[in-house]
Design a protein around this nucleic acid. Structure first.
Length: 771
DNA sequence: GTGTAGTATACATCTTTGTGATCG
DNA sequence: CCGATCACTTTGATGTATACTACA
């Protein structure tokens, strides 16, 4: 900053001052001119100062808004998922895909005993036949876009995944379209990557397997440039550029094309190879077969002739399955997530009947050549700074939350998800649709419930986190040190493990503690002979109050807290002989219906006390809570509590009383209206008389009547005016010309209503009620 | 880069049982 | 005379979640 800048204030005063530019110098020379010159302070808004950023917390309103946006976005994404799902059932798309599929790649007799390894050829064929052009959403009709993708062998990630789902379904494999609902964040402060990351290209699986590289290279005209190199060098050039451009969402369309172009070069390099390879399908498949036999067969049959010592040594079924998965993906598909490529958003789940006794839904990302790599999804999402929040599987026009299959750290995403009950309510409807779709097939229904159970078990058996902070709000586990003041462990055990030396307890053992008073509000009372679960030193304020009540017992001001296990339903003394049991203040505290003494009722109506008193019925004012005003809290009363047997009598008397009161009120209002009319007209007439007496005749005709008349009392009948607007208008005009006269002979009187009607020869009439 | 402890801050929660003057 | 209404020191202490920093 220039020399003119001056630090205003000092740090010692403890206040934060902005650095500002003061135009105009404060040098000694000019000092005397200060008064004459303009003083301008230019706030330097550059965030360069090393001062701590002011913490700005989001308001409740903001939170509500982002929650709303989150919900709406979720619903939109659910709708989109269902649309894609239903499009995957389209017979034209399925037929087109089947026509492309080489013969014998999956035998129909394999379907009932489908295992992961039997899927590999289809997946590999698919991956080599279709490529992801760009991850972006494409406008237009989804079905047409997908059909176009079939023809061009490329499309968006969503379309290509939909194609894979469609293909599996065409092969009679129960298949779901699975999508990460990449929804807007619930935290309004976070730099939501969603806002700028949409254009990131889909991951481009690197080809690392020597077998596959060899296979592809052998089919490629240019063996000097291996696909893996091509892929990675291209990505290096394009990724940062794409991210930079991707930040501006408004350039969406153009960018999409741009990124498609570059991506196309990257991913379609593969495709071009594949296209070239089409001629050499046989050779390719032979290579594939070799890869398969080297992995699948080795892992499942434990063929000792294989080189892979890992696979051979694994004897248990699970290890064997895991090794198979690993080797399958490394050797056959060679896919590895790349952080630069953004998170995976779409894939399929294929039901493999032969994978366990009951069958198993298996993650199949055919577009990226990945099978049973569900564990990679979470890490890929996390690496892309877009932690997964919702993973939803779509089928049969319904949907199911399968996040738990892909999420190993539920506690991390729990806070990023919307309130569970709302989500469950949304999904309940979609689940109904699904169950309607699977109704016909009892085995599928069985599979559903098995899966539900499996996911539920996963929810209840999460591994213990290694860091302490994770236990702060963990849904399953708790550390005693993170319990709040009003929480306690009961029962204190079992200890599930240790974290940095602290015993870990089940979250279910964490109990909320409350004072006797608070339990009372819930209609519960502390059992006799129960010692407080926790005794806290009470606050000064509370202590002060207690001191007043209990005398000078300083230092012993405590807050006694009890747990749920120490309370029982409230037993209040019942009403006897028509007498309501009251507290020491002669009231009944009605926090809820449970707080009513047996045999009494709470009548929430005003002015009941007087009725009860008049009838001689015993009652107590019902206190329903407190109100805070002017720095103090006051009890709020509503209605009374009486013995049930008097309810009818009281209500009857009350109704009678109310009728009387209403009649009185009506009478009072009418009398008031009459009185006001009387005053108004009296003052008009008085004014008229005064004008006539004291003013010039010409001035008297000025329309002073329009001014508000004074309140001059006098004795005059009360008119009940019912002139129409037209009459009124005419009257006003007439009035300018003459003064009305009401000859006796033109008057009439209705003895029933006491209304006298007076008429002026000009046509103006006035009705007056005579008192 | 990750985890922990400590601090600062903003927001949330709990607290909790009149009185005298005036009006209708 | 009696009941309703209004004004009156417009709390304030404490808990909790979160962001941030320093440090291991």
């Amino acid at each position: 900053m220039g020399s003119s800048r001056q630090r205003i204030g000092s740090d010692t005063c403890g206040e934060e001052w902005e650095d500002g530019k003061i135009s105009g110098s404060f040098d000694n020379d000019d000092h005397q001119n200060v008064h004459e010159t303009d003083l301008r302070i230019v706030i330097d808004e550059s965030p360069s100062s090393g001062r701590r950023k002011r913490v700005r917390r989001v308001s409740a309103e903001d939170k509500e808004l982002v929650e709303l946006v989150h919900k709406v976005h979720l619903l939109c994404l659910l709708g989109r998922g269902r649309l894609v799902d239903s499009t995957c059932d389209d017979s034209l798309i399925q037929a087109s895909l089947l026509s492309l599929l080489p013969r014998g790649i999956l035998n129909t007799e394999d379907v009932p005993t489908l295992t992961v390894d039997k899927l590999v050829p289809v997946v590999t064929w698919f991956r080599n036949s279709f490529c992801i052009k760009c991850t972006n959403f494409r406008e237009g009709n989804l079905k047409e876009n997908i059909l176009h993708s079939v023809a061009s062998r490329e499309g968006t990630a969503e379309e290509v995944t939909a194609l894979s789902v469609s293909l599996f379904r065409a092969l009679n494999l129960p298949t779901r379209f699975v999508s990460i609902l990449d929804v807007t964040s619930l935290n309004p402060d976070t730099d939501d990557p969603w806002a700028y990351n949409q254009d990131l290209p889909k991951l481009d699986p690197k080809i690392s397997s020597p077998t596959l590289s060899k296979a592809i290279v052998s089919n490629n005209g240019d063996p000097t440039l291996p696909p893996v190199l091509l892929s990675s060098t291209k990505s290096k050039e394009t990724a940062p550029e794409q991210i930079k451009r991707g930040r501006n969402k408004k350039q969406d369309r153009q960018l999409m094309i741009d990124s498609c172009d570059t991506n196309e070069q990257v991913t379609c390099a593969n495709n071009n190879q594949n296209k070239g390879k089409k001629k050499g399908d046989v050779e390719f498949e032979m290579q594939l077969e070799m890869a398969l036999s080297a992995t699948a067969a080795g892992s499942f049959d434990c063929n000792p002739s294989q080189n892979n010592a890992d696979i051979c040594s694994s004897s248990s079924a699970t290890t064997s399955f895991k090794s198979a998965k690993k080797s399958l993906n490394q050797a056959v598909t060679g896919a590895v997530w790349s952080r630069k490529k953004g998170p995976p958003l779409f894939w399929a789940e294929v039901f493999c009947k032969g994978e366990s006794s009951t069958g198993k839904w298996v993650h199949v990302d055919a577009a990226n050549g990945m099978i049973a790599q569900e564990l990679q999804v979470e890490s890929a999402s996390a690496a892309s700074k877009r932690p997964l929040k919702y993973v939803v599987a779509f089928s049969g026009l319904g949907a199911k939350d399968v996040t738990r299959r892909y999420c190993m750290h539920w506690y991390k995403i729990l806070s990023k998800r919307i309130d569970g009950t709302w989500w469950a309510r949304v999904l309940a409807h979609l689940k109904q649709l699904r169950s309607a779709a699977t109704e016909a097939d009892s085995t599928l229904a069985q599979v559903e419930s098995t899966e539900d159970m499996e996911l539920e078990i996963r929810a209840l058996t999460e591994p213990l986190p290694g860091n302490q902070q994770a236990y702060r709000r963990h849904h399953l586990y708790a550390l005693e040190k993170f319990l709040s003041k009003y929480e306690a462990l009961y029962p204190k055990g079992p200890v599930l493990g240790y974290c940095s030396g602290h015993p870990v307890y089940p979250r279910a053992c964490v109990q909320r503690l409350q004072t006797r008073q608070r339990w009372l509000r819930e209609g519960l009372q502390v059992k006799s002979n129960e010692a407080p679960a926790k005794v806290l030193k009470s606050s000064q304020k509370f202590g002060r109050r207690q001191r007043q009540e209990e005398g000078a017992e300083e230092g012993s001001m405590t807050l006694e807290l009890y747990g749920k296990w120490q309370v029982e339903p409230l037993i209040l003394p019942p009403a006897v002989d028509g007498m309501v049991p009251k507290n020491e203040r002669g009231q009944v505290e009605v926090w809820s219906e449970k707080c009513l003494p047996p045999g009494t009722v709470h009548l929430r109506l005003p002015r009941l006390a007087a009725v009860a008193r008049r009838l001689g019925v015993d009652f107590a004012p019902a206190m329903i809570g407190f109100e805070f005003r002017n720095g103090r809290s006051y009890p709020v009363f509503e209605g009374i509590v009486i013995c049930s047997e008097f309810k009818d009598a009281i209500m009857e008397a009350y109704a009678e009383e109310e009728r009387r009161r209403e009649a009185d009120e009506k009478r009072r209002r009418e009398a008031q209206a009459l009185s006001r009319w009387y005053q108004l007209l009296s003052s008009l007439i008085t004014r008229e008389r005064l004008s006539r007496t004291y003013l010039e005749p010409s001035k008297a005709k000025e329309p002073e009547q329009e001014k508000k008349p004074e309140n001059t009392p006098g004795k005059f009948p009360q008119p009940v005016s019912h002139k129409s607007d037209e009459q009124d208008h005419r009257h006003q005009k007439d009035h300018e010309q003459h003064e009305h006269v009401f000859p006796i002979e033109d008057q009439s009187f209705d003895s029933e209503s006491f209304i006298r009607t007076k008429r002026c020869p000009c046509g103006f009439s006035i009705e007056m009620e005579e008192l």
